[in-house]
Design a protein around this nucleic acid. Structure first.
Lengths: 196, 196
DNA sequence: GCGTTTACATTGCAACTGCAATGCAAAGGG
DNA sequence: CCCTTTGCATTGCAGTTGCAATGTAAACGC
């Protein structure tokens, strides 16, 4: 094998540049040449690693999701062993909100992707599964923590919707971060009872 | 004044075509020529009414918002005079969810716009004001109906977030309409007490 | 009837797009 | 030492984009 380079590293580098472009100028500005320029490489090299634009997009979406997963995993690990369900939930969901500039950038990309996949249902399947898994997990936590107060499944749908909606509002600059967090805590109060 | 035509009507016709294109192929497919073709007119005419693409987009966003307002107004009017706060809220919010194909189409456009405005903060200002107004109204209803149970402002933020988030999930096909409505009702149960 | 204004059509163009094709350099294996 | 494979650059091309410019037709004021 000649000319050994780390294929995955290169792809990550390019995806990184893609993210910067998408976050700054929107997904529609993401082109082979733009991304190449942002990455400081030739357009041909981008094409070498992603043969089509769609391939690039799909990979970038996977990157965003992996980042989120890593963020959540790290934050949850910092809680120590066996945290209370409510604490665990609050940590996870707060970590998924675009509260700082880094997560805002990721959030913009994710939002653009949402609009992108709304027209290409095939691509949306991956998101679909992820939501279902997350939903099950959240429902389990609610069942463990809130007992008979609510239907865990329905409450989980609502809670995830709160998170998603707050994310949208944060990205749009409709609320400051503190307001979103307060709303999240209020929601958890409603589910688990106040002051837990 | 020669050649009198209803300017607003023409613009609405074009905006209509824009909506169709955007809903079917995404906002990035919205071009002067595409919209013109969809409207069955010449590209020049589109250009006559909207000098730039951005102008077209901004107008289309206004159309979506007007449609939503009209839908809500009509649904609320059908409730008769002085409905209970919870009933009023449920009617309003359910009307804003993309539950049928017509509203799904509008929702896709709105979602694309969200991503669009996330990069052009100037355009987002209008949305900003609308959210603030809606928020105040919802908070008032919660205060009237739920009394001391919750902080109306925070609860209103959460409730609107639920609506927005459910909308996203519905557009992505993550949930069927019934699940979204159930989640909405669960949320209202949490705020107003069950069975009201 | 003339001129001005509005409505719309057509054409043109520079910029940009995704993508294929081609070319070359380097690094192994034989 | 060649030769195949891989990494990357360059070029070319057909298609599309937004937008300006130019043209024509119609309707009104005078």
């Amino acid at each position: 094998m000649p000319k050994r380079v780390d294929h995955r590293e290169r792809r990550a580098l390019i995806a990184d540049a893609l993210m910067r472009v998408a976050a700054e100028q929107g997904l529609e500005a993401v082109s082979l040449r733009h991304v190449a320029a942002a990455a400081g490489v030739s357009a041909g090299m981008v094409q070498h690693y992603f043969r089509t634009r769609d391939e690039m997009m799909t990979f970038a979406l996977a990157v965003v999701r992996e980042r989120n997963e890593a963020r959540v995993t790290r934050a949850v690990a910092a809680l120590g062993a066996t945290p209370a369900p409510r604490t665990l939930l609050r940590t996870m969901l707060a970590e998924l909100l675009p509260l700082d500039e880094e997560r805002r950038a990721d959030g913009r990309v994710a939002l653009a992707f949402l609009a992108y996949t709304a027209v290409r249902p095939a691509v949306a399947a991956a998101l679909h599964d992820e939501t279902a898994a997350l939903l099950g997990f959240v429902a389990g936590l609610i069942r463990a923590g809130a007992g008979e107060r609510v239907d865990p499944e329905r409450a989980a749908v609502g809670l995830l919707a709160v998170m998603e909606g707050l994310g949208i509002y944060l990205l749009g600059g409709h609320y400051p971060p503190a307001t979103a967090l307060a709303a999240l805590d209020t929601q958890l109060d409603l589910l688990f009872g106040p002051g837990a």
